[in-house]
Design a protein around this nucleic acid. Structure first.
Lengths: 225, 225
DNA sequence: CATAGTTTTTAGGCATGTCTAAAATCTATG
DNA sequence: CATAGATTTTAGACATGCCTAAAAACTATG
């Protein structure tokens, strides 16, 4: 078994890798809230354990073994999030925080039991995919709600789960995964977006709209604008 | 918050205190599986934090603050044991092990949710009392099954939970908490005990019988023997 | 294309909690 | 009541993972 710290680093590397390709010391330092020097020394350790590859001054990459562990932890995290929401009624803005500590102490047996109780789910409460036991993960292509054009509509796939305030804000408008949403208008210069969810109009800050991801955009296409 | 290690020491001290009055360095060393020297240095730290009192070469005692923490952890442990058994169907010989790690990462919110889902239970799957949130714990007076005389019967209150093999052995005979059991005969010189549980006779090793605690013994009293 | 500014690494420390070996203290017995 | 044997404590080390300060290396711009 690996330490909690190692698991956190591998998970962070996976998550940064997903959206930035290049995983730098400083990005890890920011994400994990530790000093850059601490990251460097952990990078050394992870390299020795063959969990990542590292070229000096050029960032890191997960090896197959490292990726496997990262996905295991992410599976734990998301199963726990869903379990807490479904079985214990924990509000969706708080499940992330709880899962952060639980993910490291979940035995394989309990993982399987939760998975079974939940009916082998594929998405957590924020819409993020739950990797399967063998490390398969199905990401759905999606774009930020903020990138839709007025008149277009789509279905919410995923919302980012780190900020409880954001989640509560998003929940107020019913922007849960699988909900259809239509963009009515977008004010220029970073202004708010007007959307319609289940026939009700809402005004949404652009920053929030960047953290809601939708798919299957239809309606007025880009070219017509 | 305190470290996992500190919580483990406090819990261990509480448990030893309960059955031995005098909590020595060596008993803690044995219980926690660490070297005596390690115990000594932790004792120093716990004393400084006013969680225990310590007289050189004379053992330790929990302070009020230390006892409170110990009971909080024990409450976590036993709630989790029961929750895992009830909600996730974990067999009773395995819940202890799982709870050992979970007890340290249970938030107050989840503690309360589990408590509510379980209907504010007072006993864990092995019959041990679950301390209430304010630290009240109700121990039921009981004696080892091994101490009953032939002809006496009682109700199982609690079984010791540390050894999965013992628990499986005990379960085979249906010796769960709340079950009535009658002692038919006891072979001398540490020989086995014959018992009757739900009209079925079983032969039980004396060692196992020492780990099953019963109350309300009736039938042939001591004096008649 | 030199250099100022940023990023990363090295060097050296610290806290936690463990260990072994040796010294100090206690205790039980002859 | 002295002392052998057990228990406890002290001394010194080590692994983990964090830190700050300073050096090294990269990169972007005038």
């Amino acid at each position: 078994m690996y330490t909690e710290s190692i698991e956190d680093y591998l998970k962070a590397i996976y998550e940064i890798q997903k959206e930035e390709k290049h995983v730098s010391t400083s990005s890890l330092s920011r994400k994990l809230g530790v000093a850059p020097a601490s990251v460097t020394s952990m990078i050394k350790k992870l390299s020795e354990k063959k969990l990542i590859t590292h070229k000096l001054y050029q960032g890191v990459k997960l090896t197959k073994a490292g990726r496997k562990i990262a996905l295991e932890i992410i599976r734990h995290h998301r199963l726990i999030e869903l379990y807490l929401a479904e079985a214990l009624g924990v509000p969706w803005d708080r499940v992330h925080q709880e899962a952060e500590t639980w993910e490291h102490v979940l035995s394989e047996d309990l993982e399987n039991r939760m998975d079974a109780v939940l009916g082998h789910p594929t998405r957590d409460p924020h819409g993020s995919p739950i990797p399967s036991r063998d490390g398969t993960i199905i990401e759905i292509d999606s774009i930020p709600l903020a990138d839709l054009n007025p008149g277009q509509s789509g279905v919410v796939v995923e919302v980012s789960d780190h900020d409880p305030n954001l989640l509560r804000y998003i929940a107020q408008m019913g922007l849960y995964p699988k909900t259809e949403v239509e963009v009515i208008s977008i004010e220029p210069f970073g202004g708010p977006i007007t959307i319609k969810v289940e026939d009700i109009s809402h005004i949404l800050g652009i920053e929030a709209a960047r953290h809601v991801f939708v798919t299957g955009a239809t309606g007025v296409p880009d070219e017509v604008i």
